[in-house]
């Protein structure tokens, strides 16, 4: 679609506005051209072969795949995965905003508490946190709300009755997500010019109102892209709660294949569902980004088809530039995530 570049000569501005230099008819240029075409041919052959293996494989049993793709338990599992993602993100965003405000507050106590939270939840594996929370009852018997050090107690629960498979799963995912959302929200708030808060205060707004009406909305364009990436990551990471036998997509598939010994077809079913959900989520993220970009930048983000097309052509055409600024930020974010052992 943006292939106008390949028809013309010399310096061609692409969609990004950067200029691509086409090789001239020198020996080096010709060699480069040949190498590029060879690389494309190799990639194409590999792709065709992968498709051939997928289609003709005996172990995949496409009939079985088709049967289980819309099987009741699998659909229920996919729905549970979605619910876990939504609940985990909701809790995560809530915790993230609170933690971000704590980290930005001048209070040392608030700051230290938030930092300790981040240190723990980003410094330990999510899988460990899930198992830990599920076994909380053997660590803390009762959860009580009251005045500490011998004061009166207002509420008290038995931890065992509070921590079910579902609540442990949702909480673990949400608490963990909160740590990552904190940094995203904080970066968003810091991206808004200080003058915005000053103007709000000068008009008679309280800090809280200024935060809600002026600062946070303007932080959105910075917050949304990495949040979308995190939501997609959480959608996949939610499969980890299968270890505490939460009946989400992967666990449902495991239940079936451990009885029927059709492991590969069911894992293919699982992959198809995850791909479907992450693809839909990516499209949703694009429209969300576009909505919140209003008024904040001079140029709107490229239309979805063009952006998608560019990412696709960048795979096939070695010369094309990869991704957009937000993709780069997302990549950095992803790197930071895995680097800290989520």
């Amino acid at each position: 679609m943006d292939d106008s570049a390949s028809n013309s000569q010399a310096l061609v501005p692409t969609l990004d506005g950067h200029v691509e230099r086409r090789p001239k008819n020198t020996p080096a240029g010709v060699l480069l051209m040949v190498l590029k075409w060879m690389a494309r041919a190799v990639v194409l052959v590999v792709m065709v072969d992968v498709v051939r293996i997928l289609v003709t494989s005996k172990t995949i049993e496409w009939g079985t795949v088709a049967h289980y793709l819309t099987f009741g338990a699998i659909l229920a599992g996919a729905l549970t995965t979605l619910e876990l993602t939504v609940a985990g993100m909701a809790i995560g965003i809530g915790i993230g905003v609170v933690l971000a405000l704590m980290r930005l507050s001048p209070s040392t106590v608030m700051n230290a508490a938030a930092s300790a939270y981040l240190w723990f939840f980003r410094g330990t594996p999510l899988l460990v946190q899930i198992i830990f929370l599920y076994n909380l009852a053997s660590f803390i018997q009762r959860i009580t709300v009251g005045i500490p050090f011998g004061g009166p107690t207002f509420f008290s629960w038995n931890t065992n009755s509070l921590i079910t498979v579902t609540s442990a799963a949702v909480l673990a995912l949400g608490l963990n997500q909160g740590a990552y959302m904190c940094e995203i929200v904080r970066a968003g708030i810091l991206s808004v010019d200080e003058g915005q808060m000053e103007a709000s205060l000068a008009l008679g707004m309280t800090r809280r109102r200024a935060m809600r009406r002026i600062i946070l909305p303007q932080a959105m364009p910075v917050v949304i892209p990495p949040t979308g990436n995190n939501a997609i990551a959480l959608l996949k990471d939610s499969s980890l709660v299968s270890v505490i036998s939460m009946k989400e997509l992967l666990y449902q598939a495991q239940l079936i294949y451990s009885a029927q010994f059709n492991t590969i077809p069911l894992l293919v079913v699982v992959c198809i569902w995850y791909l479907a959900m992450t693809t839909v989520a990516s499209v949703g993220q694009y429209y969300l980004e576009r909505h919140f970009d209003r008024g904040s930048t001079r140029t709107p983000p490229p239309r979805f088809r063009t952006r998608f097309g560019r990412n696709l052509t960048s795979i096939l055409r070695p010369g094309a530039r990869m991704g957009s600024a937000s993709d780069v930020a997302a990549a950095a974010q992803a790197g930071q995530r895995s680097g800290l052992g989520s």
Binding site: D193, G195, Q196, E198, A199, S200, P217, Q218, G295, S296
Partner: peptide, 9 residues
């Protein structure tokens, strides 16, 4: 203010 500080959104 010197730099206007209008609410950009």
């Amino acid at each position: 203010f010197q730099h206007f500080n209008l609410f950009d959104h």
